[in-house]
Computed example of a mutant assay.
Amino acid sequence: MQHEKINYLEFPASDLAKVKGFFETVFAFEFTDYGPEYTAFNNAGIDGGFYYSKNVMATTKGSALVVFYSENLAETQDKIIAAGGKVVVETFEFPGGKRFHFSDPCGNEFAVWSDK
């Protein structure tokens, strides 16, 4: 661990089983349950967890945006949709690459970008 650096992230989820299945399928997260209202993840680039809540993260509500990297944006988007996610901002270009935003099955907003 590094002193005074981001070490862990936590996200709300109204259905822990659905969110676990989604992130296992799409991004190969690994989970450890800590009771019925919390699950921790690893194998994600940074460790974190999902806690039971009916709240959702969205940039329109002022939430920070967690952005994944992909070597094949279209392939990752297809996996997200097949696993029950939804595209909430279509792919757009920006200097250095392109990205799209998606919501997980619980409604949390994330993004995926690529420089390819």
Rank of each mutant, 00 (worst) to 15 (best):
A82W: 05
E4C: 02
P95A: 12
E24T: 13
E71P: 01
T76A: 10
V87K: 10
F110Q: 03
I80S: 10
P95K: 10
T91G: 02
F23D: 04
V88I: 15
F41S: 09
G97T: 10
K20M: 15
N108Q: 07
Q77V: 05
F22T: 06
C106V: 10
T59D: 05
I6P: 12
F22M: 06
F27C: 04
S103M: 03
V87H: 11
G62H: 00
K5E: 12
Y34R: 11
K5A: 14
E37I: 05
T32K: 14
S14N: 15
V66L: 15
F100P: 03
G21M: 02
A44E: 09
A40C: 07
E90A: 15
G97K: 10
P95H: 06
V26N: 02
F92D: 08
L9R: 00
F22P: 05
T39R: 06
G62L: 01
H3P: 00
L73H: 06
T76E: 12
K116C: 01
G85Q: 05
Y52R: 13
P105W: 03
K98R: 15
V66A: 13
V56W: 00
Y34L: 13
E30V: 11
E24Q: 14
K20Y: 03
K20P: 02
F22R: 07
E10G: 01
F68K: 07
F92W: 08
F94T: 10
A40V: 03
A83R: 10
A82L: 13
D33K: 14
E75R: 05
P12D: 11
M57V: 06
F41E: 09
G21I: 01
D15S: 12
K79D: 12
F23E: 03
E10R: 00
T39W: 05
P12S: 11
F92C: 02
G49R: 04
E75V: 07
F94M: 14
F11H: 11
K5Y: 07
V66E: 02
D104F: 04
T91A: 14
M57P: 00
K98A: 14
G107Q: 02
V89D: 08
G45H: 12
F92M: 13
A64H: 00
A83V: 11
D115R: 03
Y51G: 13
T32D: 11
N55L: 06
L9G: 00
